[in-house]
Design a protein around this nucleic acid. Structure first.
Length: 892
RNA sequence: GCCCGCUUGGCUCAGUGGUAGAGCACUCGCUUCACACGCGAGGGGUCACAAGUUCGAAUCUUGUAGCGGGCACCA
């Protein structure tokens, strides 16, 4: 007899197994020895090197690990590739802050020293998250861990850049861009947040050059008027039609500016006349290009006014300048009015500083051809297949359709420096290396572009750069395209779409077939968890409190819908883990002799064994089908109820008499072996979700572990990780056994109900008399001992027996009747009440069915089997009602 | 402004054109020889609202309301 503690303590299992799995190479695809094995691969969305684990990671990693472990057990050559992102801005900020504490700026160190310092920082503090990923139980292949700044990945970045440049997709240009005055870098449109902002709308008067009158424009940013080079009106606006082409005098600057006509202007807004500041507003920039207007930069990269804004303003902060401009215009009588106004303002996604639109020379990536290919892939092949398809496929397609050029350069030091060099006379040489650039230029007097690439540029290459691209490595050939990408919805544009575009461009194939978008774990009030709000729940604390496996079940249940965090939920899965532990404990306590049974389910089987095999195989079928559809929530429900309800509540109880018999016997050994076999298969089904608990218990079972390994892993040191994932054996699905077992379950439940309602003491032995039709009588007779045990009664089954008047009675589906004789204990009035209540319930249902069946149209149009089903139910109800009537009569 | 999602028992969520589900919470009874992180028995919902399609709608359509999200160049 093997005895384990009464309560599952996750800590031990969590400490025991991970290192062993990793050391033995179970995570690496090489463990699979079947040369013809199908391939499953998945790349981790690389977490930031600065990051630490949050609920979103834990959620995604759980789902990825479930899929990976499931496929591995199913015999796939499985790779889940881990790694990290260098996270340009975040990391640079982190180190800059560290330097600041030492009283230094990055400029004090210089670029080279600073970058060295960042690497040092990474060495010391970076990658916390990698340890945390281990804690989650994630079966990633650490031997293939990658970092976006690794030399081989950097080479891939340069290669991609050069190819895109050579094909004319990357260009350098002077355009208006999003500038963060705090981070001192340009940002792409996706890194800019739009937030509603309460502000003011200022109405300014610009006088005509002719000397009389003025035109009024409305603006939220009066300080930019210093850089105005035109006023625009809609060409169809009757009010201004004749003024187009006239000249205005820009106040304060005394600059002559024209009135131009442009469709962009909405006549209904403000005064219908717009001041145009091409250097400081994206729309005005476009208008400026259309009308060939001068760009006058009046705000610099520190958000201060420039010389061009005039001596009085030069060097002044933009908001101070705003006050001064307003003040001066008011003095001049040129401020018509100021009204409260709410508008959207652009902020830096990272530091929340208000973005300053500036014209600047940057590197851009032209997206149209990349986009067209991705859209074609979606429309022609339906790739990627989004899960859930609604709404993500549309969101993805809409975004692609409206895609604009991508600003890819960043004014940072940490990142992939742009592989472009300039000759002394300003010629641009784009090359894979300095050596190559020198050859092309014919000189070594070259200066490399100081900018680095957007972090997302290297992330976009992740599914193939991590596998060795641009070299044609075995890994690349084997694992690309990957099978599925699991991610949160907020990076569909930033990352998913870009991987798709670069994958199609460089590999000629999509980087992943499926995209599974997870839901979001919200706090208990339905708010997004965020650092600034401080409402996040730390997954590590939850692991600590309830165990990793319970947390994983909770997270897997989230699936693709947003869900509020509930600790109760984790607690209930913790209880489930304990239930599994104890069921195993019971099996182990009664396992002697089991190992000697060669084939536990050979020969004719009693009902409960046929039933559990049917339930088990249906469960396996369900789980396999649902996992193929990424229905994580449904799989968890299926497993939970199979294990707890079917296996624990019924199968174990039904088997107890035999398996806990005092003395050894072939029957006892067989019963024990059967129980252990079903348990063992259940553990395998549960393993992808609960890796630690299942491994811990599986190892303890008295079974021949090596026989259970999937053939692809034959010869490996046994682990449940490499055991075959159960498949449904259709021959074992037995509907008849399920129906018969259901009758037994109903019978037992009804007797227990009588016990409870009649307040019969739990320990008290009762009589149960059963009368049933021939079929059911056979079933009940075969299970009589079990019925007796489960209801604590002496059971007699006789189709013709007279039921004593003084009994509590019940009528079951199929026409079986039960009586519990209670001579002297029964209150006839109370029993009548009980039966009447029962009859009423039946009648209600009967009436509903009757109404439906007497509807001619229903009978004609509904499927015949539907109608038949209802008729059968109605007949059953009628029969039971009659039986109840007889009982009631006997009582009166 | 445009687009989308959600609204099911007290709470958190499944679900589906044909008799409303789970977990937790609640009530009653249990130291029944695996488990009180448990066992047994219960109570509780006109599936947001309105109209429509249908033999039949909580499930499909449209509209309304509340909540949430995404996109957007109205100064």
């Amino acid at each position: 007899m093997i005895e384990i503690p009464k309560t599952y303590d996750p800590t031990e299992a969590e400490q025991n197994h991970y290192a062993r799995w990793e050391e033995r190479g179970y995570f690496a695809p090489e463990i699979n020895k079947d040369p013809s094995a199908p391939v499953f691969s998945i790349v981790i969305p690389p977490p930031n090197v600065t990051g630490s684990l949050h609920m979103g990671h834990a959620l995604q990693h759980t789902m990825m690990d479930v899929l990976t472990r499931y496929k591995r057990m199913s015999g796939f050559r499985t790779l889940w590739l881990p790694g990290m992102d260098h996270a340009g801005i975040s990391t640079q900020l982190m180190v800059t802050r560290q330097l600041k504490k030492e009283g230094l700026s990055r400029h004090d160190l210089g670029r080279e020293k600073f970058v060295e310092r960042v690497w040092q920082w990474k060495q010391e503090y970076g990658g916390q998250i990698l340890k945390q990923i281990r804690r989650e139980g994630a079966s990633v292949d650490w031997s293939r861990e990658r970092f976006t700044m690794d030399e081989d990945l950097s080479r891939a970045v340069r290669e991609a850049f050069v190819r895109l440049y050579d094909d004319g997709l990357i260009y350098r240009g002077n355009r208006i861009v999003n500038w963060c005055p705090n981070d001192q870098t340009v940002l792409s449109d996706l890194e800019v947040l739009r937030e509603p902002q309460k502000g003011k709308l200022y109405y300014l008067r610009y006088p005509f050059k002719s000397g009389s009158g003025s035109i009024t424009v409305a603006t939220t940013r009066p300080e930019t008027m210093l850089g105005d080079t035109a006023v625009a009106v809609n060409p169809t606006d009757e009010r201004y039609k004749e003024l187009v082409g006239q000249t205005l005098i820009l106040p304060l600057m005394n600059r002559e500016i024209p009135i131009v006509a442009d469709d962009f202007v909405e006549s209904e807004f403000g005064t219908g006349a717009v001041k145009v500041t091409p250097a400081h507003d994206p729309n005005d920039y476009e208008m400026g290009v259309r009308h060939n207007l001068e760009q006058i930069t009046v705000i610099d990269q520190f958000a201060r006014m420039t010389e061009a804004a005039g001596a009085e303003f030069a060097g002044m902060d933009r908001y101070k300048a705003r006050e001064l401009v307003v003040e001066k215009l008011e003095e001049l009588g040129l401020l018509e009015k100021v009204v409260d106004y709410e508008f959207a303002i652009s902020k830096c996604e990272r530091c929340k500083t208000v973005i300053e639109p500036l014209t600047s020379t940057q590197w851009f990536c032209r997206m149209d051809s990349l986009r067209d290919r991705a859209l074609a892939k979606l429309r022609v092949d339906g790739t990627p297949r989004f899960g859930p398809q609604v709404p993500y496929e549309k969101v993805y397609a809409d975004w692609l359709e409206n895609l604009r050029d991508w600003t890819i350069s960043r004014q940072l030091w940490w990142g992939h420096q742009i592989p472009a060099w300039y000759t002394a006379d300003g010629k641009i040489i784009v090359a894979r290396s300095f050596e190559e650039a020198k050859l092309t230029a014919g000189t070594d007097e070259l200066t490399q572009d100081p900018d680095v690439l957007d972090t997302w540029f290297s992330s976009a290459l992740w599914p193939f750069s991590t596998l060795g691209w641009p070299d044609e490595t075995d890994d690349l050939k084997t694992f690309y395209p990957t099978t599925v990408l699991v991610t949160a919805r907020d990076i569909i544009f930033l990352w998913v779409s870009r991987m798709m575009m670069t994958g199609l461009r460089f590999m000629g194939q999509e980087p992943f077939a499926d995209v599974y978008v997870t839901g979001t774990v919200l706090d208990k009030h339905g708010q997004r968890m965020s650092k600034t709000k401080g409402n996040g729940v730390d997954p590590l604390e939850v692991f600590e409190k309830f165990g990793v496996d319970a947390t994983r079940l909770t997270l897997a249940s989230v699936g693709s819908t947003d869900t509020r965090w509930s600790e109760r939920q984790v607690e209930s899965y913790r209880n489930f883990a304990n239930k599994i532990w104890n069921a195993t404990r019971f099996c182990l306590m009664n396992s002697d002799g089991a190992e000697s049974v060669a084939d536990p389910f050979a020969g004719d089987l009693p009902l409960h064994d046929r039933w559990i095999l049917s339930r088990l195989n249906k469960t396996a079928r369900d789980v396999n089908e649902k996992l193929a559809q990424y229905e994580f929530h449904g799989v968890v429900q299926t497993l939970y109820h199979f294990f707890w309800d079917d296996f624990c509540d019924w199968y174990i109880e039904l088997s107890k008499a035999t398996m806990t018999a005092e003395t050894d016997s072939p029957e006892r050994r067989t019963a024990r072996a059967r129980l252990i076999s079903v348990l063992e298969q259940s553990l395998r089904l549960l393993h992808p979700f609960m890796p630690y608990l299942t491994e811990e218990l599986w190892q303890k079972l008295p079974v021949d572990h090596s026989q259970l390994l999937h053939p692809a892993y034959a010869g490996a040191e046994p682990t449940i990780m490499l055991a075959s994932f159960p498949q449904c054996d259709d021959a074992l699905v037995d509907e008849r056994a399920e129906a018969e077992m259901q009758a037994v379950i109903d019978l037992v439940s009804r007797v227990r109900n009588i016990r409870a309602e009649m307040s019969i003491k739990p320990g008290e032995q009762i009589q149960v008399m059963i009368a049933a039709n021939a079929d059911l009588q056979t079933v009940f007779t075969a299970s009589a001992d079990q019925i007796a045990r489960l209801t604590r009664s002496d059971v007699s089954i006789d189709g013709n027996a007279e039921m004593p008047r003084a009994s509590a009675r019940a009528v079951l589906t199929g026409g079986a009747e039960v009586a519990v004789p209670l001579e002297g204990l029964i209150d006839f009035g109370q029993e009548r009440e009980r039966l009447l209540k029962e009859k009423e319930k039946l009648q209600k249902e009967g009436e509903k069915l009757d109404a439906q069946l007497s509807n001619q149209e229903f009978v004609e149009r509904a499927p015949a089997e539907k109608v038949e089903g209802l008729r059968a139910r109605l007949a059953d109800i009628a029969q039971r009602t009659t039986a109840l009537d007889q009982m009631l009569e006997a009582l009166s």
